[in-house]
Amino acid sequence: MLHIKCPHCGMRSQNEFSYGGDATVKRPELNKEVSDQDWDNFVYNRKSLRGKHLEFWQHLSGCRQWIKVERDTATHEIFKTLKANEDI
């Protein structure tokens, strides 16, 4: 079980969190033209990275804040956790 440092609450066990996907994906802006390719990339296409990966997690059973976690997908090492509005 991973040990994740919520930037709001501190170190907590993984079972308080839920995973929320790739944090480098940006949703296209509303009311803007989006090409099929760009939309497909946003909705479906993800790289299955081996190594450092920036991802969203929600501290579901804690403060309910969505946070960013920089994690190694192969070793589970967590390098950094950030608040939603912080950039790496």
Binding site: S18, G20, R27, F56, Q58, L60, R64, Q65, W66, A84, N85
Partner: peptide
């Protein structure tokens, strides 16, 4: 609820 929080916190803060 998580869905709403996702958009409020991450997409349209």
């Amino acid at each position: 609820l998580s869905h709403l929080e996702y958009y409020l916190q991450l997409v349209w803060p």
